[in-house]
Amino acid sequence: MSDMNRREFAEAIALASLAPLVGHRAGLMSFPALESGAAVVDPASLAKALTGAIRAQYGDRLLEADFDVIAHQIQAALERAAKLRKVPLSNGDEPDFVFSPVRAPSVG
């Protein structure tokens, strides 16, 4: 069975270059980022560990061959995440969502 899905296919046909980044928001307060001491994480090792978490939760319903596929998928996801870590962010760069506090109308 193939482990490349349509999304991965779409990625494969797209440019995914990581040229020097431009376009950071101007005019917003920015906080300096620390130079990160490059923690060396081998995606294959981490994928193996995370596959262990899947095994712990769902091991009774998956075949050994399934775990190979899942490990590969996890590794691919970790490699995608590694590319994101090349984008510089400062402490003030917030996630693109806004939480709305709730106050229900008073009753009576």
Binding site: R7, R80, L84, V87
Partner: peptide, 13 residues
């Protein structure tokens, strides 16, 4: 040219 962000990787995650 598209800006050099990893758009597809972000979308996947």
């Amino acid at each position: 040219e598209l800006p050099g962000y990893p758009y597809d990787e972000m979308a996947s995650i």
